[in-house]
Design a protein around this nucleic acid. Structure first.
Length: 117
RNA sequence: CAAGUGGAACAAAUGAUCGCGGCUGCACAGACGAAAGGGUGCAGACGAGGAAAGUCCGGGCUCCAUAGGGCAGGAUGCCGGAUAACGUCCGGUGGAGGCGACUCCAAGGCCAGUGCAACAGAAAUAAUACCGCCCGGCGUUUUGCGAAGCAGCGUGCGAAGCAAUACGCCGGGUGAGGGUGGAAUGGCAGUGUAAGAGACUACCGCCGCCGCGGUAACGCGGCGGGCUGUGUAAACCCCAUCCGGAGCAAGACCAAAUAGAGAGCGACAGACCGGCCCGGUCUGCUUUCAGGUAGGUCGCUGGAGGGCUUCGGCGACGAAGCUCCUAGAUAGAUGAUCAUUCGAGACAUAACCCGGCUUAUCGUUCCGCUUGUUUU
RNA sequence: GUGGGUAUGGCGCAGUCGGCUAGCGCGCCAGAUUGUGGCUCUGGAGGCCGAGGGUUCGAGUCCCUCUAUCCACC
């Protein structure tokens, strides 16, 4: 990913949870906070309640792939945390991708020309 | 062909594009960082499992502790072997199930001791009390006989007595009959007896001794004892064997920071001692050392490793030769899209490494064996 | 990675050394009381003790495997 890196520290996650804004739908919860840098940082979280290791890893890959393929239309300078809900355990790529883009629109973090389509 | 049984292997496949991880090679910049270290691009081959899971056992490895021995605690538990080790595996013994192939068994010791055995039952381990059965004595009831006697005259009544019967009491014999229980003094049949009893006898069981076979567990045979309560040790316990503790966030190295120690500097600044200078102390500056946080590196994958052949062994396994090398992340790499095929793809993601066990699981293929049916 | 706890009526908890039909409080239902409701009194229903095996004559209790959940330490 060219413009982004991943969110690593527990303190970073904590900061986004406490100070960021959140929207949610059936599959995902998305927290967003401006980080005053010129890159985005993406954090993915899935608790043990969602499923076993295979399910959680697959969720993380689907989110990462969805973000990677649409990276160029995101605004920069954001910390984004995506949390899995329980129904995400059975979701495929198409559902996760549409959910991610839908929540991004609600956050107004996509570049302007995307909305003209 | 059907049903079954034991074992082994595989775990959707192929192609294209984009993307991820470390490795190798080449190129670029020598930017980032105090240092340790590292960056970017291109190419190449490689990149999770049979259980990677649960963390139930065992070992390697690392650090700590440790003269030697014992106690406590824990684990294991038929015998022999395999192994680095095991609670695993192999072979055998005994028992249970199945027509069979075959499967299953925490399978040492309740004649070392202690504890427990509700309810039911006469009684739950202490001995025989209770009931029963048998014998004898006494008393009473009923029936029969009935000398004397009475009525009376081919008979009837009938005290004592005798016999039988039933009940009660006393004394003795007997030993499992009491049907309740998971378990009742070995079982069953007969002899025997007043009634009975291993009291005696045959068979089976049990215990002891001897012989033979086997490394052993144990098996087979013979002789003897008439014979001792049962269950529970996944109750305490006894016996035998084994076990030091912690865990890769182990541990080692580099090392900003921040405590600390030493040396140097009076060139500079401040404070204190002092009337002032010199001098001294503290802060300071430079430097060395110790220390180890953030961060980084190693540990980190070539190993009790896999495959094939030969040899030894019933086998687990061992030996020799040839050959192969196939993840190593550190917030944690396998995904997305398209196309084709089939039966429409289960369970489930390495985290120091191995050997097992247990549990989950869509299916596919192969081999051995058993039983039944049909055909020849 | 290591170690430990809990699971019992709808809820919160007892259940001893294995032994009779598993108890307690709150709640629920019915009745009594009251003009009505509450309080009170009386009676009642509701459990296969997380799941599956095993040991035992007998298991909520003992042993094994599994499931869920909670906690502690590095």
């Amino acid at each position: 990913m060219v413009f982004s890196e991943s969110l690593k520290k527990n303190n970073d996650f904590r900061n986004v949870y406490e100070n960021g804004k959140s929207y949610a739908d059936k599959y995902l919860v998305m927290y967003v906070l401006e980080n005053n840098k010129n890159i985005n940082r993406l954090g993915i979280s899935a608790s043990k309640k969602v499923g076993n290791s295979v399910v959680r890893h697959r969720f993380a890959r689907l989110v990462r792939e969805s973000y990677r393929l649409h990276e160029n239309i995101f605004n920069s300078g954001l910390d984004i945390v995506v949390v899995a809900r329980k129904s995400a355990s059975t979701a495929g790529y198409a559902e996760i991708e549409s959910a991610l883009l839908h929540l991004s629109k609600l956050h107004h973090i996509l570049k302007i020309y995307f909305y003209k389509d």
